[in-house]
Design a binder for these strands. Structure first.
Lengths: 360, 360
DNA sequence: ACACGAAATGTGGGCGCCCACACTTATGTA
DNA sequence: TACATAAGTGTGGGCGCCCACATTTCGTGT
């Protein structure tokens, strides 16, 4: 028979003090005599007090301003999904009567200065908390430094910056992601063989993100198949003649059995690969529409889902938890490396877990 | 600039009536004149009123009793995970001050009468809602009929019973699950080949569950590879001599390239399979400890995760949503078909999404 | 026209927590 | 000793919703 929940009132009764005193002890707001504090702490030690979050939240009737800083969703469907997650998180909070105003700042993921400008804008709006996808490593460091200085809490997602001191990092283990890709390319293949890592339309030097994926890929393949070859390429300006020419160079590699596209741009190379040889396995990232078409057409064999939507949604939720409840969140929250094929993609798309819903 | 949340008070003001009247209209509790009802409804149509769930829940200070009816967690690690999900759901609700008492009834999944007995016990305790994993199709029908009669709401998970009228069904698309297994066995293989479906320690005649998986498997394989062969077996009494003997029969099938174990008992056959021939692909279900060891050892290649923990947790949450908030839940909630390999299993196990936590 | 009951409407208190403020008690100074 | 100040403590109101109950309005019959 589980006893009724313990309230502050009960603690006060047990300790022989008033509710106000208990409250002061709980929140360490001082103005409590040693004797009283001891009495309360003694009771607290004996029972397991869990404040009612419902009541707690209902009381504090202030509006929090959360800023988000991500690549422009209009420029890339991946970041569109991330933005959807931000909105979903906002909606869910609103449902609980938690007043959160989200102010989204966007930047162009190809232009460093665009990031710096947007970051400055965010900083000057003095939000209560920030959610950031910091694609530019070095350009973002001063921003984090300033946030630390004025003690504005922030959460990073998608890309980890080692020097930053965020409340938490939300993302995937990219090294492991690369290892997984290697296994997906290897399974059932006649080995040793040649494999290609393609970085499409991204500046590798600026992107830790992609380098980590590649290093996991190479390391794992070397371990499992020392005699297989790995080639990597940076392909720029998708859909131009120059691009296609360079891609052809890749596809003429002797005994090429698999292609790993390190970003969500798999759709830009997959059809060409399969046209040359349907036996070449293709692994890419993310459930954006064009990739799904490739999955269905069979030109992409596996997608690894980074789930930007849920990452962003969790970011908003975590920020709210910290701001409203002073909850300590774990220092990182690594998402599962979801393997998507033509046969299970439907089950992911229809899964309501990605939508805004109470308590889910 | 998003306006402040609309409260009942605001509606009352706009409609020129009192809070009480608005409340009566919202809850259709009658005792409202036509004129007043119209005024209120007019305002409601114009604005988008979203009641504050926090306040709503805080008010109603009653305890709900939810019964659960599942196989005994001590008999099967799969059902242990499900039970963990139930407890996690309960904890999460408790954190919000939502008073839910869970009364768990267990049955022996091998004994029909055991189910009937437990079901009766649940029925006579007259809970406010029930969460059920009904492995026995026909034996469960009278139970649902009685629940319908006395209007006790219930949710099914894991196994769908077409004749039941639950609030919702939580589970996976099993046909699709079978198709997925087929693809996982096929990928990279030299075809046509022979494949085996193994039902371990389960009574196929009683289990729609397994038949659906097999039919999805066969249908898809037939479509993709008309010349491949599919054999299916029911293996009973794992780890006995008789079991091993029958298993050997399976493994001697000519040109056998893949084994699909339809339950979480993959660990009982995987090592034997790989000993005969490491090239034979093995696909099983669920992240139970023994299976994880097989994944690591390489005797199981792929696991499909049914996520009993999250299924059960969602079941409790949904039930609470219905009981407390009169929320309408979708008629079904199909979970993603998660593909697990040695390379991404860690990311699933460490994922905090499976643990009890606020708003997550 | 009045009385009476039914119907409609308004009001207040409580859920648990938090904070402001009023109040009581201890400490220090002239 | 009186008084000012500080330190400690208790109380009440409010967050938004819901429900019980008090109050008002309306309709009917005599």
């Amino acid at each position: 028979m589980p006893q009724k929940n313990i309230r502050i009132k009960d603690i006060a009764l047990l300790a022989g003090v008033s509710e106000g005193t208990v409250d002061r002890v709980l929140h360490k707001r001082g103005k409590v005599s040693k004797a009283a504090a001891e009495k309360v702490n003694k009771v607290l030690k004996e029972i397991n007090y869990r404040p009612n979050l419902l009541a707690k939240t209902l009381g504090q009737n202030r509006t929090y301003r959360i800023a988000t800083l991500t690549p422009n969703p209009d420029l890339d469907p991946f970041w569109k999904q991330s933005q959807d997650g931000i909105v979903a998180g906002e909606k869910q909070l609103a449902q609980f009567g938690i007043q959160v105003v989200i102010e989204s700042a966007f930047y162009n993921p190809a232009i460093k200065e665009s990031f710096q400008e947007a970051a400055l804008k965010v900083f000057h709006s003095f939000p209560d908390g920030v959610l950031i996808a910091p694609l530019f490593y070095y350009a973002s460091l001063p921003f984090f430094k300033r946030l630390n200085e004025v003690k504005i809490p922030y959460i990073l997602f998608n890309t980890r910056i080692a020097e930053a001191k965020p409340l938490t990092f939300i993302g995937q283990d990219l090294i492991q992601s690369g290892r997984l890709a290697a296994d997906l390319l290897r399974v059932g293949q006649t080995l040793p063989a040649a494999f290609a890592v393609l970085h499409v339309d991204e500046d590798l030097s600026n992107s830790v993100h992609l380098r980590e994926k590649e290093s996991g890929f190479r390391e794992h393949l070397k371990k499992k198949d020392p005699f297989s070859q790995v080639y990597s390429f940076e392909l720029k300006n998708a859909n131009t003649a120059a691009f296609r020419k360079e891609l052809n160079l890749v596809l003429n590699i002797d005994n090429l059995r698999g292609v790993f596209v390190s970003t969500s741009k798999g759709y830009a190379v997959a059809p060409s690969v399969k046209k040359i040889n349907p036996e070449i396995r293709v692994v890419g990232y993310d459930l954006i529409k064009v990739n799904l078409e490739c999955l269905e057409a069979g030109t992409i064999d596996f997608l690894i889902n980074q789930n930007p939507m849920r990452q962003a949604k969790l970011g908003i939720q975590s920020l709210a938890n910290c701001l409203l409840f002073n909850k300590t969140v774990p220092t990182q929250h690594l998402f599962p490396l979801e393997i998507i094929t033509a046969q299970n993609v439907g089950s992911y798309l229809s899964h309501p877990g990605n939508q805004a819903g109470i308590l889910v």
